[in-house]
Computed example of a mutant assay.
Amino acid sequence: MTPLLLALTLATIVVSALAQRVAGLGFAMLLAPFLVLIFGPHSGILLVNLLGAVSAGVMFIRVRSYVDWGMYLRLAIPAVAMSVPFSVLALALPAAPLEAGVGFLLLLALAISVVLHRGPRTIDGPGVRTTAGLTSGITNALAGVGGPTVSVYAVISRWDQRKFAATVQPYFMTIGLAAMATKSAVDPGEWPVLSGWTWVAMFGMILLGMYAGERVARFIDDRTARAAVIIIAFLGAASTMAKGLINLM
Rank of each mutant, 00 (worst) to 15 (best):
F234G: 04
Y171E: 05
L30V: 01
R118H: 15
L31Q: 06
T167S: 05
M180V: 11
A79K: 02
H117V: 14
G176V: 01
Q161F: 12
I45W: 01
M29S: 02
T224K: 14
I123E: 01
M173G: 03
W191R: 14
G133D: 07
I138Y: 03
G236W: 00
R74E: 14
V152L: 13
S184N: 13
A28C: 14
M180G: 10
M59N: 12
P94C: 03
R121T: 15
I45Y: 01
L50F: 13
G119Q: 15
M205T: 12
I45A: 07
R223C: 07
I77S: 07
M180R: 10
L10S: 06
Q20S: 11
M82T: 14
M173L: 09
V22R: 06
V88N: 06
A227G: 12
G189P: 06
A111S: 15
L177H: 09
A132G: 02
A81G: 09
A95N: 04
K163C: 02
I112R: 13
G133Y: 07
L235Y: 11
I45D: 01
T122M: 09
G70F: 14
Q161P: 06
F60I: 00
L8S: 10
L75H: 12
F104T: 13
M249W: 15
V193T: 10
T182G: 04
I246L: 10
A111I: 11
V200G: 15
Y66K: 15
L248M: 12
L25M: 04
T167L: 01
L31V: 08
T2L: 13
M1S: 10
F164R: 01
A132P: 00
A95H: 08
